[in-house]
Design a protein around this nucleic acid. Sequence first.
DNA 1: AGAATCAGTGCAATCGATTTCGCACCATTT
DNA 2: AAATGGTGCGAAATCGATTGCACTGATTCT
Lengths: 338, 338
Amino acid sequence: MSEVNIKYLAEKLGLAPSTVSRALNDSYEISQPTKDRVVALAKALNYQPNPFARSLREQKSKTIAVIIPERINNYFSQVIDGIEEITQEFGYHLLVYSTHEKIETERKIISYLLNGRVDAIVMSVSSQTKNIDHLETVYNKGVPIIFFDRICKEIPTTKFITNDYENGLKATNLLIEKGCKKIYFLLLSKEISIGKERLRGYLEAMKDSSLPFEESWVIQCSQKEEDNISLISAFLYGLDRPDGIVASVEKLAIATYYAARETKLQMPKDFKMISFSNMRIAGLLQPTLTTISQPALKLGMECAQMLMKKLTKPNQPPLEDKIIILPSQISLRESTGK
Amino acid sequence: MSEVNIKYLAEKLGLAPSTVSRALNDSYEISQPTKDRVVALAKALNYQPNPFARSLREQKSKTIAVIIPERINNYFSQVIDGIEEITQEFGYHLLVYSTHEKIETERKIISYLLNGRVDAIVMSVSSQTKNIDHLETVYNKGVPIIFFDRICKEIPTTKFITNDYENGLKATNLLIEKGCKKIYFLLLSKEISIGKERLRGYLEAMKDSSLPFEESWVIQCSQKEEDNISLISAFLYGLDRPDGIVASVEKLAIATYYAARETKLQMPKDFKMISFSNMRIAGLLQPTLTTISQPALKLGMECAQMLMKKLTKPNQPPLEDKIIILPSQISLRESTGK
DNA sequence: AGAATCAGTGCAATCGATTTCGCACCATTT
DNA sequence: AAATGGTGCGAAATCGATTGCACTGATTCT
């Protein structure tokens, strides 16, 4: 490759490599004239320091890993945009991995990152994640880790979430206000934190209301789009079908639209729905979808800001064990009726 | 951090670091018993080689950069999924960058990658990219680069696209068949390759037909959603509005839906539309959207396969200067009428 | 028997940048 | 005039893994 390294610059300038290094790093030990000469030549030859030599020496990579359960999801894309916006200013790079919701992939990815390849990890755990040995290993190795959205409560570090409990409650109450008598709750997995919190809100709202409730109204869905559509269609076909649905994640709302089409049911006439979702085009669906959307970009930025502070300032304490809650926003649309 | 390195293993085993290294790399020079001892201890202590030391020594990073114009776009997410699927098998890592369609950001990102940080680059250029100095620099430095979707023809390397010209033609002809007399073409930028190709197909179809055509029917849109909506609304308000629209990218189709709502026009009654798009939920819009969708996952996988061959096999020639064309798929839906 | 061969290891250089130490030189102080 | 101090820079070690070369002891060949 191109051979412009410190030794080469030093030779050209008749200086020692150490002097060149110091000059480039603006060390006080070097005279201004020398600094100027060095910097000038470096610029002229378009010198770029070798990142691996530097990382090896400094024991840090200026790289952060972002691990998400799936890529084809606006929410996660927005979060990454937010993270990148901040980290880029600090010259950090982003390694992005998708677990495809598989715990085994998650473990494998984590194992690649335990050798110093990254200075920190920002992640949202997969829906399959129950066993958290691999996450504990990260923590024990001292690699800073921040969870967002689907957090792992057991690891004592900073987590970013939205007010899921509260919104689960609000969403359910909204349906109740709209006159729904039989409200189902769709969730992806009971294992993941946001599912749990949103579910807790739903359960609380149901308890507080005078409406009937049965355990079986909490529907556990899978990762397969087709399976979910049949599952949802199945209960929509029945005469004792629900008249309200709270979808805890976007993809389940979409499956419900397909199921509604299949069963020829109309929203909001036959049943109403509200979903947690960051779709840009919720307002273009038929009918338009009432959503609870998370401040994804902001969340990403705040994660990154915290991380940059920890990584770039000297003598920072470990990431605090606390949960930071950002507010979501409810957008009322046709799917819940007027 | 954890101090398990080669030197430490060597000490524990009473061997030289070089022997340990060779044993771990299964060198023929080392006896089986020694190999076994070394491997056993390495496993027991969970030894992970330092990636930077290795990269420094081997002059390769096992990392690939993926540069896309925007993250919040299913198409690009799918491509990255495809790339990751393949590269992961080979133990490669993915640095992902978004240019946000800004040439300046694109240049900056590229400049970070010229120091050996990555072994190759896979990218789709921003819509602003006219000046290609930075891309030429990449090429001249010998960093393998593959373009996809929005390619840069001038750089002699492999490019992956879909049959954009053909589909621009087909899309336009479809509208003509459906009875459209006045067909507009919405594009993001004349600079980007796919825009050009799709436009070429449109122009060809228009020329071949007996329909009238004016230059002003090719609408150049911007990056701003609101501006696009007003721009589209503006011409939809007129009495001489188009009765057919070909949207060359997804976001312009979405803007058109909003504009249609604003102007109270109905698809497909008042005008018909077809769009290039990889939206999963084109079938849930009101009306459902006829799309030309690209084989994004497959494209990503083929890119990555080519790259892995180039990077992991010895004595590979430079990436061939050729364009590989994958076929898109048209899905007929309501927006173009029955 | 002496030379040649070879398997199995160790030594030391290397990748490129940073950093500790130290040294020369000039100016100032006592 | 000797001691002190500061400025500006160089030599060499270091980060961790790899690798060309040298070395040892044993075996084989002539």
